[in-house]
């Protein structure tokens, strides 16, 4: 019995602090903050409305806090923001309000869902994070930005779980469907769509598989130019 009381007394504060959304977010951030820089090979697949594009390989470069660059061996569409930009927003726990919204299983992993509202929003207006509390990693995030609408990131962790670096990341974005005047495309015989004047929206997905991570290595700043 004594042992039970001791266990509860010891575990309750820990459990309470673990359930604190800011703590959960901070833990995830701290894990990622161990990464000063990294280089990895990337294989990108694209599933974008009105864009047909085969996969492309390349290298990804990151330097804390917010330098990120993908260099591909061919044309690639890459997200405008650094995919870790939302994590950087969590750097200062006083700069946002975090609300625990509930729990959800993602790929059979128990996750806490936390909404984040920045006090002084820059680009991120609202963030929603699915945190694997057991591993202190963010499995999924949904960021509403002022500049690019809602961006969803799905992270699949494997070899570099200790650094909160995913083996695979799927970025889902809202995008305007591509349209060009017939005269420019020179598709003289094509039929114009009836809604050609409207800017149609669609959802695009970019999957990035990372391999050969080199973390906290020497990184030439020139790659970000």
């Amino acid at each position: 019995m004594k042992r039970r009381i001791f266990f509860l007394l010891f575990m309750i504060p820990w459990a309470l602090s673990a359930q604190n959304p800011k703590t959960l977010l901070n833990n995830a951030f701290k894990k990622f903050a161990k990464v000063q820089n990294y280089i990895a090979d990337v294989h990108m697949d694209f599933d974008l409305p009105s864009v047909s594009m085969d996969a492309v390989t390349g290298q990804v470069f990151y330097k804390s806090p917010n330098k990120f660059r993908i260099k591909s061996k061919g044309i690639a569409f890459v997200p405008k923001q650094n995919p870790y930009f939302s994590l950087n927003e969590l750097r200062d726990t006083n700069s946002y309000v975090a609300v625990l919204q509930g729990a959800e299983k993602i790929r059979n992993i128990n996750c806490r869902i936390i909404n984040v509202i920045p006090n002084n929003p820059t680009d991120m207006i609202l963030g929603k994070f699915w945190i694997d509390a057991a591993n202190n990693v963010i499995l999924k995030s949904q960021i509403t930005t002022a500049s690019n609408g809602t961006i969803q990131l799905d992270n699949y962790f494997g070899t570099q779980k200790n650094f909160a670096l995913p083996d695979k990341m799927v970025i889902t974005v809202e995008m305007t469907k591509f349209k060009m005047p017939k005269a420019l495309s020179a598709e003289l015989n094509s039929k114009s769509s009836k809604t050609s004047s409207k800017k149609e929206k669609g959802t695009g997905k970019i999957s990035m598989d990372f391999t050969n991570y080199k973390i906290n290595t020497r990184l030439n700043e020139d790659v970000f130019k």
Partner: peptide, 9 residues
Amino acid sequence: LKTEQVIIL
């Protein structure tokens, strides 16, 4: 560049 599609080869 097509009227309603971009193809990257």
